[in-house]
């Protein structure tokens, strides 16, 4: 499967939450931004599923709350 890179995830998070791209980096996590809330979290996951064609387990949605965690989950 094609590996997902950090920029792709940052773009999705930025597009979904309307947080400027330059404010997000590899170390960013949901608690850093009040706009990355539970509703945004589901939208991010759905967008990632669409873009990557990879199904994310529902029980993992609440755990994937940082760029690093998302990358790790998608690439392993």
């Amino acid at each position: 499967m094609k590996k997902i890179n950090v920029d792709q995830i940052i773009s999705i998070v930025s597009k979904t939450t309307k947080i400027p791209k330059k404010q997000i980096n590899i170390n960013s996590k949901s608690s850093d931004f009040y706009r990355w809330d539970s509703l945004a979290q589901v939208s991010i996951i759905i967008e990632i599923e669409k873009k990557t064609k990879k199904k994310i387990k529902t029980s993992k949605i609440g755990e994937l709350t940082s760029i690093k965690k998302i990358i790790k989950y998608l690439n392993y």
Binding site: L39, V42, S43, I46, T58, S59, I61, G62
Partner: peptide, 14 residues
């Protein structure tokens, strides 16, 4: 994890 996310995800359009 067990109610909100599955429920929201199951909606056609959020």
């Amino acid at each position: 994890n067990c109610i909100y996310f599955p429920w929201i995800k199951s909606l056609n359009k959020i």
